[in-house]
Nucleic acid binder design. Structure first.
Length: 824
DNA sequence: AGCACGCCGACT
DNA sequence: GTCGGCGTGCTC
């Protein structure tokens, strides 16, 4: 017996800090290996899918082990790169490996145990059963495969657990844990000949069927469709299509199958379309692109990361494509990261036309089965059939790459690359840099408006910097016009939410049959309602935010917990019936546009209109085809879309962004306005951008008008230094949560005090966030700002010590503490 | 995270 | 008197 393969340390998909050690039964010793999935019992009921992290021969001292029940994989699904990557994520972002496991693997690869309940047939009523118990027993007798949730549904009861428990005690039912595999391969049925008949054999067969006309007909029709004797390889014939083609009955086909002439077979079907698309060569680069790509290659010789700072429509994508091609020729994989909203059909199509079915897409709107297929595809060892290029969102950094050569992070400044909740709170751009380091690959960051931190890294020589200021086909940068709404309001010249300038420009554009994009970073109709006489504002009962009014369903909705109510007719406080909406969101803009421009075709693009799988694509398609004149939207409209006929972009309220209480507010406002401006004026004509603001003299607005990123950068940089922010300092936010506000405040004060003893003035807070209650949990933050040079690992270790100390205090046991490293 | 155990309030 | 609320502790 081999002693060193006695035990395995398992990662479980739970937010628990340790690994769990199980013993490997003799019969599984050949199967169980590092990186494979295993099923293990946990507690006295549950089963989980875990990942084998370690195999060893050291029996644990303090407890006896349970046995691994099954091994799910023939070959590992987690490779060594991934284990190292997971370790880094869990250390850097201060979370547990189980959290990383949960985020990294599509849930279809994680089995779940489900309690299956069956009625005991031998049970005879000896004791009196309660009504609900009888009801439950009745349901069980008439259906099979019942679990708790279906039982709750069938009986209409909220919670049947107590009754189940008592029935179990009385011996009326049995309960069994069942493991459900969520992922099923999709298969399709096909028809083919049962054996390889020669032409003369086939002739005999057909003659033999002369008394079964229908069967003969089917056979001939099959030969016809499959071109069996005409082509080298017969065409595949799908069962359903075949039956439909001649209105054949299944029964007739069945008799042919029984005669062993035809047979039906199943074939696994990829949910992802792998059909061969025609690939076309690369586009030739213009001289500026050529220069940029040459510089990039040169930087890569000594630097691992290059920032490609190229203005909107300077043709960054073509540069990426050329670089991807180079990697593929060397047999390397490429990961192309995009933020959610920029992963559009346009870019997918472009990549597919060049790389065909070598491109895999990993999108959040894909269902789980599709993700499992992509995961498995990347994991397989056959480079002929595996995707070589993955175009994906944040979570695609967790795919099982074996041989990465290049990671491209497009729209690098996008804050959606940072995951906020749940843990792991990772930033895909920063994680990508580490991932590339593991593979000894290069990273290319691309954007028109770099994040301050990134530009700083480039300027200080940590990254290579390549700049590309020439728009392709020499399209001019749009003309930016400012509308002073304070002035317009004073003179009472505002038409609802539109300044006279905007009204005029919209009218002209519509007359010229040109398209318009209007941008407002707020969905819903109006951010809040207010009582005209006493100023009362309806708030969410669970969160400390006002409720947003949505007109399309006439609801007041909380954007934090989705709580919704009917708008009140009367004020809760003074019963006045005069309740007015305040502020405006995309819905209201759409509404107002309809009344001012009844002829115009208007589309709205925000979270509410793009929930369905293809809704976003449909809107884009309609706008591209000029089936819409005006597109109103939140930041979704500002990303990576190329439209040819947009002559006007309107930013309805620049101040709402500028006044946001965050140290990144100015940076983000600049990025947002610069990006949305980039949508204006493509071919032929110079576009116009109109920005409505109360503060036309604002320096950020000036930077936007002059398209002066560098000025914005240097003014922000000095502010960052002065006020102790990145890139000079590293931020770690410590978030405390509890249902009891007093207890929470006390705990935060105790923690802040003890941290100050170590970190001194580097500790800020405790500070209540603007929204200090979400889903009935109060929230308070403590912020640590440490010098970039000092060791973050040590600081994190100290933070953990103090947090654990707090959790060990009797009165603060219930407090939840989590860390957010490099918060956004 | 789940789930069991255990201790206090409102009800058949 | 019980049912059921959620606070607390444990899981290899």
């Amino acid at each position: 017996m081999n002693k060193t393969t006695e035990f395995a340390d398992i990662i479980l998909p739970l937010p628990l800090a340790q690994l769990f050690t199980y013993s490997i039964p003799e019969e599984l010793k050949v199967d169980v290996a590092i990186g494979k999935r295993v099923v293990v019992p946990f507690g006295n009921k549950k089963f989980y899918t875990g990942i084998v992290k370690n195999i060893h021969g050291n029996p644990p001292k303090d407890y006896s082990t349970k046995e691994i029940l099954a091994c799910l994989d023939d070959s590992p699904i987690i490779n060594n790169f991934q284990f190292q990557f997971w370790d880094w994520i869990s250390q850097y972002y201060q979370c547990v490996l189980g959290d990383v496991f949960k985020a990294a693997i599509p849930s279809g690869l994680k089995l779940e145990s489900q309690t299956k309940i069956t009625a005991n047939e031998e049970f005879q009523t000896q004791e009196l059963l309660s009504k609900t118990e009888e009801q439950i027993l009745n349901v069980l007798k008439h259906s099979k495969d019942v679990n708790i949730s279906t039982l709750n549904q069938a009986t209409g009861l909220k919670n049947t657990l107590p009754q189940i428990k008592s029935l179990l005690e009385k011996g009326a039912i049995t309960v069994e844990e069942q493991i459900i595999n969520a992922y099923k391969e999709k298969t399709k049925q096909f028809v083919r000949l049962a054996s390889d008949f020669s032409e003369s054999e086939m002739g005999d067969l057909i003659i033999g069927l002369k008394r079964a006309k229908k069967q003969q007909e089917i056979l001939l029709s099959y030969l016809n469709l499959s071109k069996y004797y005409f082509e080298e390889t017969a065409q595949k014939v799908s069962l359903t299509e075949f039956l439909k083609s001649g209105d054949f009955s299944r029964a007739v086909l069945k008799s042919l199958v029984e005669k062993q002439i035809l047979e039906i077979y199943h074939e696994k079907l990829d949910r992802i379309d792998l059909s061969h698309t025609e690939t076309s060569g690369l586009k030739t680069l213009n001289e500026y692109q050529e220069k940029a790509i040459a510089e990039t290659r040169k930087h890569f010789q000594e630097k691992n990361c290059v920032l490609l700072h190229g203005v909107t429509s300077s043709g960054k994508t073509e540069i990426y494509i050329h670089l991807i091609q180079e990697q593929l020729q060397q047999g390397k994989q490429v990961l192309y990261l995009l933020p959610e909203i920029a992963l559009t059909t346009q870019i997918i199509t472009r990549l597919r036309t060049v790389f065909g079915n070598k491109v895999g897409i990993y999108h959040s709107k894909f269902n789980d089965a599709e993700r499992v297929e992509i995961y498995n595809n990347v994991n397989q060892n056959d480079p002929e059939n595996a995707y070589q290029v993955i175009l994906g969102v944040r979570s695609s950094v967790f795919l099982p790459f074996k041989n990465l050569g290049l990671i491209i992070v497009d729209e690098e400044h996008e804050n959606t690359y940072k995951q906020f909740d749940p843990a792991p709170r990772y930033h895909a751009r920063d994680a990508a840099l580490y991932l590339a380091h593991l593979h000894k690959a290069k990273t290319l960051l691309g954007t028109a408006t770099p994040a301050i931190e990134t530009y700083y890294n480039a300027k200080t020589g940590k990254y290579g910097l390549v700049e590309l200021f020439q728009r392709h086909q020499n399209i001019e940068m749009p003309e930016i016009i400012i509308a002073d709404i304070k002035e317009a309001r004073r003179k009472k010249r505002m038409k609802s939410i539109f300044s006279p300038e905007l009204m005029e420009m919209m009218t002209t554009s519509l007359e010229n049959k040109e398209q318009i994009i209007l941008f407002q970073n707020r969905r819903g109709y109006s951010p809040y309602l207010e009582c005209k006489s006493c100023g009362w504002v309806p708030h969410c009962p669970n969160c400390s935010v006002s409720l947003t009014y949505h007109q399309y369903n006439n609801q007041l909705v909380c954007h934090y917990c989705a709580h919704s109510i009917q708008p009140p007719n009367n004020c809760d406080q003074c019963s006045s019936s005069e309740i007015e909406d305040r502020g405006f969101g995309t819905e209201k803009i759409e509404d107002e546009l309809h009344s001012f421009f009844p002829e115009a075709r208007i589309g709205r693009m925000d979270l509410d209109t793009t929930r369905k799988k293809m809704a976003y694509e449909n809107l884009i398609y309609k706008f591209e085809n000029h089936e819409l004149d005006i597109l109103v939207g939140t930041q979704m409209v500002s990303k990576g879309l190329d439209f040819d006929n947009v002559s006007l972009v309107g930013v309805l309220n620049a101040d709402s962004m500028l006044n946001y209480p965050d140290y990144r507010a100015y940076e983000r406002s600049y990025q947002m306005m610069a990006q949305v401006s980039g949508r204006a004026g493509r071919k032929k004509k110079r576009g116009k951008v109109l920005i409505q603001t109360f503060t036309p003299e604002h320096p950020i607005i000036k930077n936007v008008i002059e398209n002066d990123y560098v000025s914005m950068y240097s003014s922000q940089l000095s502010e960052r230094q002065e006020f102790i922010y990145p890139p000079y300092y590293r931020l770690i936010n410590i978030c405390l949560k509890d249902k009891n506000q007093t207890k929470l405040d006390q705990a935060a004060n105790v923690l802040a005090k003890s941290l100050r003893k170590v970190f001194g003035a580097r500790i800020f807070g405790p500070q209540s966030p603007v929204i200090n209650r979400i889903q009935n949990y109060y929230i308070i933050n403590i912020l640590l700002k440490i010098e970039k040079k000092s060791s973050p690992a040590k600081a994190k270790w100290i933070l953990n010590q103090h947090a654990n100390h707090l959790k060990n205090m009797e009165q603060f046991k219930s407090i939840q503490i989590n860390f957010d490293v490099d918060p956004m």
